[in-house]
């Protein structure tokens, strides 16, 4: 098997590693880089637990061939906040009780971030479209929508300062 060099930016850092032709971006993130915040739910593009942002767009990393990340900017949940300095979405997900078991949360937050990075005044329908590919078995989505709206407000305020 011919391993190939994959170069990309991960959470702002340059990465260079060897990948096999059958690896997905999710395999690289979880198994090679040990960043296990990105979850593997279905492995079939159907649940959104593996959502990361690639070149500004939310994608299901379980159905992205690793080599497609070549020269791309990839963001994962680890890159958007720390426990001392949470991203507004992480704060509002906690405040609004938009997390229960938490398995869908990293993917949900990455989908929401991809939306808010482009649109800080989303309508409910925009939020629904952005997270329609993220399945949550616990919360019922209403609190998630509220959390995303609240995060948008926070981010607007932060921007205004």
């Amino acid at each position: 098997m011919q391993k190939k060099v994959l170069r990309f930016q991960l959470n702002g850092q340059s990465m260079e590693l060897l990948v096999s032709p059958d690896e997905t971006l999710l395999d690289v993130i979880r198994d090679q880089l040990s960043l296990t915040g990105t979850k593997k739910g279905c492995g079939k593009g159907e649940c959104g637990a593996c959502t990361v942002i690639m070149n500004g767009k939310a994608v299901n990393s379980c159905v992205v061939p690793a080599m497609q990340a070549m020269d791309a900017e990839v963001e994962t949940i680890e890159g958007i906040g720390t426990s001392d300095n949470l991203h507004p979405l992480q704060e509002t997900f906690i405040d609004y009780g938009a997390i229960q078991c938490g398995f869908c949360t990293p993917g949900m937050i990455m989908s929401a971030k991809a939306l808010l990075d482009k649109n800080l005044t989303p309508a409910r329908l925009d939020i629904k479209e952005a997270i329609a590919g993220n399945i949550c078995r616990c919360t019922g989505y209403v609190k998630i929508e509220q959390a995303v709206l609240a995060a948008a407000d926070k981010m607007k305020e932060n921007k205004g300062q």
Partner: peptide
């Protein structure tokens, strides 16, 4: 088609 994540690729 699918979901936003699917449509994006």
């Amino acid at each position: 088609v699918g979901s936003l994540q699917i449509r994006n690729t």
